[in-house]
Design a protein around this nucleic acid. Structure first.
Lengths: 225, 225
DNA sequence: AAGGCTGTTAACAATTTGGTAACCCCTTTG
DNA sequence: CAAAGGGGTTACCAAATTGTTAACAGCCTT
């Protein structure tokens, strides 16, 4: 469908980093972890996450400092930033808000609730409208309805098939390397076998009836109407 | 010019009352403040606000009590009520704390987020005028009378079922992710189990008799006539 | 107090999906 | 022509998801 949402999570306590990181990944996010403020800053610039979660108390640079610095960069002026802090620290609450954070969450917090708030925040920032509909010839790919329409006919694709087709059709004519496809549809740390992509391509071709996906041998696949 | 939307905001901490009150007014709402539960109750009856925000911990009457009492009055059976809870308040996150509130929001929270959630809630309840009646085929959903009519037949849906169906039918064909459904129908702070949505969907399907709710596996549900 | 609703959860059944292995086919190379 | 490199196909199985039912706790009404 779309590249997965990246979240940078910074905390100096390894246990928390692990637990929350694990849960974020389980939610389907791509997680980048940082163990101090400086690293959070560097990795943010490198990876351009869609959401940044900063513990306030961190060595080298506090979450507040990082937040300030990030907000000065054009690339991060719109990125939602969440500050984590210890219970009832009123002063840091105020400071956290002044630093340009978008939400403020007190530790400890149940992972369920944390996930729920992160999901809500991303939903609000990310897709405040409808996703983009792709139209090529008499084919329509509508992510909002999760449907592919060919002429009069509605085609029912499974999730992975839909994501794969959406990716290819997002840039018709462009060849996607097998590696690119893997990282875009399956994610970077998921490992699947050689034939997996082929099988999904086959299923799409079969359901579509038309051969709109061309194989570029030794390279990858491309969508072509 | 139409009458401004009235919001009653009750909290026993004067600072918070000031800050949030100021921000609500800046958003264009007419704000009525109350500094304890009893006052919240009295002023609600007097001013008939379109939205009520109650802190849970308040002298004289807690937010929960006020909420209960309000819900028993016909005038307030449909008024959206938001409960403010402190994160370290054990009871607030315990399931079954169903006081009839429409959303729960944890303090501390950035004013930005709070405003956004309040706007969303008001949008959802359409309290700026009559709620719109949804008509699809020979089905009619009337939020004003809280009724669903199928042909000649009136169908009695429970509150959650009604809200869920209304949400899905508000954009026929569009897929709602499970997360979206949760935050729109249950609110972002309330945590319910995995199967809860399914069970409600099942009940709706059962009562409707027709299969107008389609499952999109791994994604969510959509209404389709 | 009894009986009805409602909203949730738990437990288990049913279904769909994604992934892999195995095998087939074609093309290119030596 | 045989071998090697890529892909295409298919059947099969395990994991992920959803459907269904029953049981429960609160509330409300009788």
């Amino acid at each position: 469908m779309e590249p997965r949402i990246k979240i940078l999570f910074a905390d100096d306590e390894p246990d928390i980093l692990d637990i929350i990181g694990y849960n974020l990944e389980k939610e389907g996010y791509e997680v980048i972890t940082a163990k101090d403020g400086q690293q959070a800053l560097d990795l943010s610039k490198l990876h351009r996450p869609d959401l940044i979660i900063l513990d306030i108390m961190m060595p080298h640079k506090t979450g507040i400092e990082v937040c300030h610095l990030l907000r000065q960069l054009p690339d991060f002026s719109e990125t939602p930033i969440v500050m984590l802090t210890a219970l009832n620290d009123e002063t840091s609450h105020i400071k956290g808000l002044d630093s340009g954070a978008d939400d403020y969450i007190s530790k400890p917090i149940s992972t369920k609730i944390l996930m729920s708030r992160i999901n809500a925040l991303l939903r609000r920032f990310h897709k405040d409208g409808d996703a983009k509909i792709i139209k090529i010839g008499d084919m329509t790919i509508d992510p909002n309805r999760f449907m592919v329409i060919l002429g009069e006919q509605e085609i029912n694709l499974a999730k992975k098939e839909f994501e794969l087709l959406s990716l290819l059709a997002s840039k018709p004519g462009r060849v996607f390397l097998r590696n690119e496809i893997l990282s875009m549809v399956w994610g970077t740390e998921v490992i699947v076998g050689d034939r997996t992509i082929d099988v999904h391509i086959r299923k799409i071709r079969q359901k579509m009836g038309i051969d709109c996906i061309k194989t570029v041998k030794g390279v990858g696949y491309k969508f072509e109407w």
